[in-house]
């Protein structure tokens, strides 16, 4: 009896697990499924009310992709976004890595408070900041240039990344740096040769987060840039594929799908693998 009860309990627990996992899988995968299926649906199929919206009711079409790539500058926008993304990531790492390390290790207890204060600046919304920022961009003569975004984006990526990296650096055992300093390196040498290689996980996470922040930014990109050739994906797609109250759903979804899948893959392949257990074995265990 007792064994039977135990087996039932185990079964119930397993079913509960599966149910929960199933829920989250559907929750996370559904938007991608929706984007994908809409990309290939013909417009009549999309708009006809009686159709099952979750399935293809008519043969698939490449019409929407054609519109996206031939009737808009989508390729150029992707390129612009990547360019801004890469440059902003580089600037962010260059400043946030030393800043995060200094806050975690050199500043002592004040570092923690300063770190939080820096993070708070990230919370000031761009809808407030874009007005003064646009004055600065105007004065610098950077309107319609991607460089305006390269200049402004670090104002929110650096605080966020500094705070994120501070946490990663704090988790690295101090002994490792001290050992490196005794083994013949300066503090800076220990930082470059020991701390940074061990923090690959954290730095990669920062890269992905920064890239995501840049890709989804809308307000600055919309305000500073009016020339279609210089748009980023987040501005170009809604500007060109929504005409008044006419939505080009197929092409919109195709644009979203193409720009979100690489980020989703990055998250899946890297963050998981690097974050867990990388420093295991460094200290007792």
């Amino acid at each position: 009896m007792a064994a039977e009860g135990g087996a039932m309990k185990r079964g119930a627990r397993r079913a509960g697990h599966a149910g929960l996992i199933g829920f989250f899988v559907i929750f996370s995968a559904f938007p991608f499924y929706w984007m994908l299926i809409t990309t290939f649906k013909s417009t009549p199929d999309l708009l006809k009310r009686g159709n099952n919206p979750f399935l293809l009711n008519a043969p698939p079409t490449l019409e929407h992709l054609k519109v996206l790539f031939y009737d808009t500058l989508f390729g150029q926008w992707i390129w612009n976004t990547l360019l801004v993304g890469v440059v902003v990531v580089a600037i962010t790492l260059l400043l946030a890595v030393p800043a995060g390390y200094a806050l975690a290790r050199v500043m002592g207890p004040a570092g923690e408070k300063l770190g939080i204060a820096i993070f708070l600046t990230y919370l000031v919304p761009p809808t407030l900041l874009f007005i003064p920022m646009s004055r600065i961009i105007g004065d610098l003569g950077l309107q319609d240039s991607l460089w305006s975004l390269v200049l402004v984006y670090p104002s929110f990526t650096i605080p966020f990344s500094t705070w994120l990296l501070m946490g990663f650096f704090k988790a690295i055992p101090k002994d490792l740096e001290e050992a490196a300093m005794i083994d013949g390196l300066s503090r800076f040498g220990a930082f470059v040769k020991v701390v940074i290689p061990i923090s690959v996980a954290g730095i990669l996470t920062t890269v992905i987060f920064t890239l995501t922040l840049v890709m989804q930014e809308f307000v600055y990109a919309l305000t500073f840039i009016t020339a279609a050739r210089s748009f980023t994906v987040s501005v170009g797609v809604p500007t060109f594929l929504v005409h008044g109250d006419v939505y080009f759903w197929g092409s919109l979804m195709a644009g979203c799908f193409i720009s979100s899948v690489p980020v989703a893959l990055l998250y899946n392949f890297f963050v998981d693998r690097f974050v867990v257990g990388f420093t295991m074995g460094a200290v007792k265990g």
Binding site: D175, A179, D183, G184, I198, A282, K284
Partner: peptide
């Protein structure tokens, strides 16, 4: 003098081996 200039070697309680 900084640690590196003292001609010493230290073994830490945690051993502090470089994990990478």
């Amino acid at each position: 003098l900084p640690p590196r200039a003292r001609k010493i070697a230290m073994v830490f309680q945690s051993y502090a081996l470089y994990p990478h």
